[in-house]
Design a protein around this nucleic acid. Structure first.
Length: 781
DNA sequence: CAGTGAGCGAGCTTCCGCTTGACTT
């Protein structure tokens, strides 16, 4: 039996630490929190705010094991993380395991190294009850907000909805961005660029120092420079430095993995968890950019050996993000000298990204030389400016290309990729090749994707590294937002080109504003958001979390009592809940009267129904049963018109009977369809479902059945689960529920593919296949 | 990427923040 029991939060950490401590110590894991507010009931006293805790059923086993060991140990060391939640975990352990003060010590360490842990053991302290109370305030406040607001939504909007301090603000960001885009007023101007040749005949590209508001102004300018001479007026050269980005935190890792590897936020965390468990990287849920001395030294060595001393620059970064608690290190490789690891493709790619980012953060600045050449135009006030950049010393750019790890959202693509300028002399005359005025449009704001929403939440200090991924999942599960693509719009723009003495005009088209994998608000999301903002403005305020965090800090410093902070909040909040529940409105939240049915005079309204947005015709007043119809894809509660709504009631329509069963035309989530004997055929886009005749419908059914029959291109005796199928995008391989792309050069000979060939393709692509999304769970009726 | 599809008067839903295994629909 061991004399000492050390309890940490994570089993991977426990394993590592046990090796450092020798045989007098047993190290176990609590697997995070072991006790929480009761799951189903409110569990907070409305007067005293006393919380009712319980050990959840899935934690009973862990707790029993810990208890057994704790009773036998002479000393129990509580070594949960050094932050608010960690302190609370220690306190709950103390309470639940029935520990004694004289045989309990609280220790913390900031890096998982032998000296750091031995040092922690040398310097134990007591549980900090102020910090624990700050956590209790946080926990209780979140329960109050969540469990008081959600039922309001069940009554006012639809069952099973939810609201909370974090998720509701996340939805607000998405709804507001969509409104910004709707209200965006596009402004246009004319940007003038020139192509010159210098004395050697090399190209010089330059941009005019001003833009023109109208085509006429741009035209007048081009006319006026026909006979001008263009002279190199000034050449300015100055050194520019570029600094590497700090090492990864959870949020920056999610952003970069999304940007560079195309991972979703959840995917990144899953792969990182594997890397952590196999000892490849440090802990992956962190808000700290701090690196251990061990890592700084190891990085220095690797850089000096691989690239030379001049590439080394040891840096220690400091966290600037709001609400950071810095209980861990930055996310970095455990062993810096391991540049590559074994593992599947996703693991190798993510590891590579982490390794490079960490190494780059310890490398020298990149040194560049920026040159700006000013070109005068006859006696005119405007000038052309040519800019160029030369890398003098690549520094960290040698291994990490994206300095800031961000895309510049303001840029409209004008300043990208500065290249080298040819040699020019001051006073030199340049020959004009051509000058082009291009019509430009200001760009509307860009929608959020998962990773950029996380970045925004972190910036606002809302949510924690351990919850970013789940928050993103929750708002999608509640159907407040959905991931989707927006097709670009074709836009026409004009150019005016001056070449020699000739001024020509041309019209071009381009696709703008195309977006993929963006978060779009649903009707439900919009209705819930507007309702919450109107009735609970404090909760929906972007600064609510930051403000309340200041009070939690006061509790942690012992300056305020936690119940007082909660009470103060509750007294302002609870009456608003009361008021909302008791305000009986004639119409549902978000309901909109579109008008009346011209035939019957029945009112036509849209609202959020039990299954989402719905149009209703008539009400119960005249004793007639109201009719309902779902909105089509693309139709929005806010914008649908009476005419569009009435059209929805035209379907379903019966066409007649075929083979003893009726053929009907219906409208579904994915557009109009023909239904017969339980099978469905989509009606192609250009075809009006009201015009489809019985004969056409029959033809469509037959074509579908034929396609279905031809779908199975090849099956294999070796394995019944392996098939070659013909899909919408051509032939593909289907195996055990996953699909695999068939290389283009094999499309011709799908019929004689061999079993071995197919298995090889599957093997090659198996890393790339994303795990199947969890099956949607429906509540049992 | 690889094929979908109703229903709109019956009983349960929900928060945020720590952490990973456990399974049969």
């Amino acid at each position: 039996m061991k004399d000492n029991l050390v309890i940490v939060e994570s089993p991977a950490k426990a394993k590592t630490i046990e090796k450092f401590l020798g045989d007098k110590y047993k190290v176990m894991s609590s697997y995070g929190h072991i006790r929480d507010l009761k799951k189903r009931s409110f569990s907070v006293d409305e007067k005293t705010f006393a919380p009712q805790y319980e050990v959840p059923s899935d934690k009973a086993k862990v707790v029993a094991q810990l208890k057994l060991q704790a009773e036998q140990a002479k000393m129990v060391w509580l070594a949960s993380d050094e932050d608010r939640e960690g302190e609370a975990i220690s306190w709950h352990l103390y309470e639940v395991l029935g520990l004694k003060p004289e045989t309990t010590r609280r220790i913390v360490f900031h890096e998982i190294t032998k000296p750091a842990i031995l040092d922690a053991i040398e310097h134990p302290r007591q549980i900090d009850l102020n910090l624990v109370n700050a956590q209790q305030a946080r926990r209780v406040l979140d329960r109050i907000v969540g469990f008081k607001l959600s039922p309001v939504l069940w009554r006012k909007v639809k069952p099973s909805l939810s609201a909370g301090r974090v998720q509701s603000v996340a939805v607000r960001l998405i709804v507001e961005r969509e409104r910004e885009i709707e209200n965006f007023k596009c402004e246009e101007n004319y940007r003038v660029t020139a192509l010159f040749k210098n004395a050697d005949g090399s190209d010089v590209k330059a941009v005019l120092s001003r833009r023109f508001a109208t085509e006429d102004e741009a035209k007048a300018f081009l006319e006026s420079v026909k006979d001008c001479t263009f002279t190199v007026e000034d050449i300015q050269t100055k050194p520019v430095k570029r600094t590497p980005a700090p090492p990864f935190t959870t949020s920056t890792l999610q952003q970069e993995a999304a940007h560079k590897l195309g991972f979703t936020v959840a995917q990144t965390m899953m792969v990182a968890q594997h890397l952590y468990e196999s000892g490849r990287i440090t802990y992956m849920r962190t808000d700290s950019v701090n690196l251990s001395k061990l890592c700084l030294g190891a990085s220095k060595k690797v850089i000096a050996e691989q690239m030379g001393e001049q590439y080394v620059k040891t840096r220690q970064y400091h966290t600037s993000s709001k609400g950071a608690q810095e209980a861990h290190e930055a996310i970095r490789p455990t062993y810096m000298d391991q540049q590559q690891i074994e593992g599947n493709q996703q693991e190798r790619r993510l590891y590579d990204l982490i390794w490079k980012r960490t190494i780059a953060s310890q490398m020298a600045d990149a040194e560049l030389e920026h040159t700006q050449v000013t070109i005068s135009i006859g006696g005119k006030e405007e000038t052309f400016v040519a800019e160029g950049e030369v890398v003098k010393f690549d520094g960290f750019l040698r291994i990490y290309s994206d300095a800031n790890g961000e895309i510049n959202l303001e840029s409209d693509g004008d300043n990208d990729n500065l290249s080298t300028l040819p040699v020019m002399k001051k006073g030199e005359t340049l020959s004009r090749e051509q000058i082009v005025a291009t019509q430009r449009f200001s760009q509307r704001p860009v929608r959020y994707n998962e990773a950029s929403l996380v970045r925004k939440l972190e910036e606002l200090g809302i949510g924690r590294p351990s919850t970013y991924a789940t928050t993103i999942t929750t708002i999608q599960q509640r159907e407040y937002v959905e991931k989707g693509d927006k097709p670009g719009e074709e836009r026409e723009y004009q150019t005016l080109t001056l070449k020699g003495d000739k001024l020509t005009q041309a019209s071009h088209t381009t696709i703008v504003g195309q977006e993929r994998g963006k978060l779009l608000p649903t009707d439900t999301g919009i209705v819930v958001n507007d309702y919450l903002i109107e009735n609970f403005p404090e909760i929906m305020d972007y600064n609510f979390t930051a403000d309340i965090e200041k009070e939690f800090d006061e509790i942690a410093e012992g300056k305020m009592a936690w119940e007082g902070v909660v009470k103060n909040f509750y007294q302002g909040f609870e009456p608003l809940v009361e008021k909302s529940v008791n305000t009986h409105t004639e119409h549902k939240v978000g309901e909109r009267l579109l008008g009346n049915d011209p035939k019957t005079g029945a009112p036509v309204t849209v609202k959020i129904g039990r299954f989402g947005p719905v149009v209703q015709m008539g009400n119960n007043e005249d004793g007639q049963k109201p009719r309902f119809a779902q909105l089509n894809a693309g139709q929005k509660l806010e914008t649908i018109t009476l005419e569009e709504a009435l059209e929805l009631f035209q379907l379903p329509r019966k066409l007649g009977t075929y083979e003893g069963e009726p053929i009907t035309i219906g409208a579904g989530k994915f557009g109009p369809y023909v239904a017969h004997k339980g099978s469905y055929v989509s009606i192609p886009k250009g075809t009006d479902p009201m015009e489809v005749t019985f004969e056409q419908a029959v033809i469509m059914m037959h074509r579908k059945h034929q396609e279905e029959a031809e779908r199975h291109l090849k099956t294999f005796e070796e394995d019944a689960e392996l098939e070659v199928l013909n899909g919408r995008y051509g032939p593909y391989i289907s195996y055990k529920g996953n699909n695999y792309r068939l290389p283009k050069n094999m499309h011709e000979r799908t019929k004689n593919l061999t079993y071995e060939e197919c298995m090889q393709i599957i093997e090659e692509q198996s890393d790339r296949v994303a795990s199947k999304p969890a099956r949607r769970r429906f509540t049992r009726k």
